[in-house]
């Protein structure tokens, strides 16, 4: 299994842990992830809030790189995933935008690169049975609230990822790992990550309601797949505790880190020490499969 892998800018800064854990998991499962040479930022929210052509051109350049490699493009960040998918949609449906992109980049892009989330690869290409065989450790009943956030699942016509109101992809992985995925109502609520630095006042409310709901559902930790959700929910907990008098201590762990633990990969390789809220309860729960 071989893919073009788009790390996204956060992989080199706030989400080195997501990057290193995904690479380690992929290696253990013999998945080959190849970074396209010269990849650039997808433009994220600031680009689509500023200019439609800019918002399509930046991802298009990266998709062209994958097209030239003749591979599907694998992504972790939900924001990048959404922008890349949106660009495929733009290029296919708007010839004018396709033409303008072609003129600027000097290469035509037809929207044909298959953009897939790392979770999709695990479920669809690797398969649950194969994964189960590879696990050396179990989450031994750890209660996990899977949080999907916005841009993986919405809008469904474009992302085509699972069910937009009640996705279960991550839940399936948690259950194969021997954890207990919780049925809870905030799987796809917005945590406000896009406003993390600009409207912290609003974000504190949004993140509070998500973490509070997970806690009420009995979660030991929240599993996420996106670096923006992770940073927002992890780093804002101290502010929420101060401003709202809560006592949150909820580890926000990447699904790739949990997978890594079950594959017997070391804590350091998975970047588990980088999390702000200590994931010690998660690490203690993990036990060897006998």
């Amino acid at each position: 299994m071989k893919y073009a892998y788009y790390p996204g800018c956060s992989a080199e800064s706030t989400a080195r842990d997501l990057h290193s854990s995904s690479i380690a998991v992929a290696r253990r499962l013999s998945i080959e992830l190849i970074e396209p040479d010269g990849w650039s930022c997808c433009g994220a929210t600031p680009a689509h809030q500023t200019d439609r052509l800019l918002a399509a051109s930046l991802p298009a350049f990266n998709l062209i790189l994958a097209m030239e490699m003749g591979l599907d493009m694998v992504v972790n960040c939900a924001e990048c995933f959404s922008r890349l998918k949106m660009t495929n949609h733009e290029v296919v449906n708007h010839t004018e935008i396709r033409k303008q992109i072609g003129a600027t980049i000097g290469r035509d892009y037809d929207g044909s690169v298959n953009v897939r989330h790392f979770i999709e690869i695990l479920l669809e290409d690797v398969g649950i049975d194969f994964l189960q065989d590879k696990f050396t450790h179990s989450l031994s009943g750890l209660k996990v609230a899977c949080y999907y956030g916005c841009l993986l699942v919405r809008p469904q016509e474009i992302t085509q990822f699972d069910n937009p109101e009640n996705p279960v992809s991550m839940d399936r992985l948690i259950n194969v790992m021997g954890g207990e995925s919780l049925d809870w109502p905030h799987k796809v609520e917005c945590c406000g990550a896009g406003l993390a630095l600009t409207r912290t006042d609003v974000v504190v409310h949004l993140a509070d309601s998500i973490i509070g709901m997970a806690k009420d559902a009995g979660a030991d930790c929240i599993a996420v797949a996106c670096p923006l959700c992770q940073a927002n929910l992890d780093m804002r907990q101290s502010d929420i505790n101060n401003e709202k008098g809560r006592h949150y201590d909820m580890p926000i762990v990447y699904i790739s880190q949990l997978l890594g633990l079950c594959l017997g990969i070391s804590m350091d390789a998975l970047g588990l020490r980088k999390l702000m809220v200590s994931p010690s309860c998660v690490i203690h729960a993990v036990s060897a499969v006998v």
């Binding site: 040479d37 010269g38 650039s40 930022c41 200019d51 052509l53 800019l54 930046l58 350049f61 980049i105």
Partner: peptide, 15 residues
């Protein structure tokens, strides 16, 4: 480091 800065600049200029 590592991005194709030339192409990115071209994209910004075109916009």
């Amino acid at each position: 480091r590592g991005a194709d800065k030339k192409t990115v600049k071209r994209i910004f200029d075109s916009v």
